[in-house]
Write a protein that binds this DNA or RNA. Sequence first.
DNA 1: ACTTGACACCTAGGGTTTCTATGCCTAGCA
DNA 2: TGCTAGGCATAGAAACCCTAGGTGTCAAGT
Lengths: 104, 104
Amino acid sequence: MRAEVLKGHLDALILAVVADAPLHGYAIIEELKRRSVGSLSLPEGTVYPALHRLEAAGLLSSAWSRGEGRRRRVYELTRRGERELGVRRGEWREFVKVVEAVMA
Amino acid sequence: MRAEVLKGHLDALILAVVADAPLHGYAIIEELKRRSVGSLSLPEGTVYPALHRLEAAGLLSSAWSRGEGRRRRVYELTRRGERELGVRRGEWREFVKVVEAVMA
DNA sequence: ACTTGACACCTAGGGTTTCTATGCCTAGCA
DNA sequence: TGCTAGGCATAGAAACCCTAGGTGTCAAGT
């Protein structure tokens, strides 16, 4: 898949994954790969900045998981993040409808 | 619809519209608006550069329609454009599948 | 005659997004 | 010890779309 087709949709994908369970960045990448059966192998340089962006926007909150050796920054949805995910899902359905209508 | 969601898909939409009938830029904008029932009101500053890009890539060819007063640059698909449209349609279906799988 | 709006083309510049490439660090295993 | 996987981060480039402006024709209304 060309890289550009993802633009503008990555945030929704990340929100959807984190909505099901709080995860750290690396695990988010793995989960995206798993759900897409390998189609989405996003580089870290794409995902980490996106997470920072989403947190800065108040849609995610994060905390370092203290404990077992490896440091991990675990993200979870905020209230605003949940609402935003709903908005993005609606937007996605609308987008699909429009493109199908034009391309048909 | 947010602007970014379109990124990377505009070319496919334009190719699909022109594939059905050769059109000039302004008419392409109108046709996109019509097929999407108003959802896609693309500014000229978006479409004209895209047309130039597609022509430079050899996917469209154009000619000034000589004749009645108003000058119009009419675009049509090249052989390569037809093939590319096929590729893009497949890519679109794959993309929808992947996003649905992740967002579900 | 003049103005307004639709038609029709064009470009420069900016903002956003994603990717490439790189760096740093820990843990486990051969 | 060296290698691989896990884990986070940033800088810079490349691509895309939009904003904001410009040029000009044509038809209709005042």
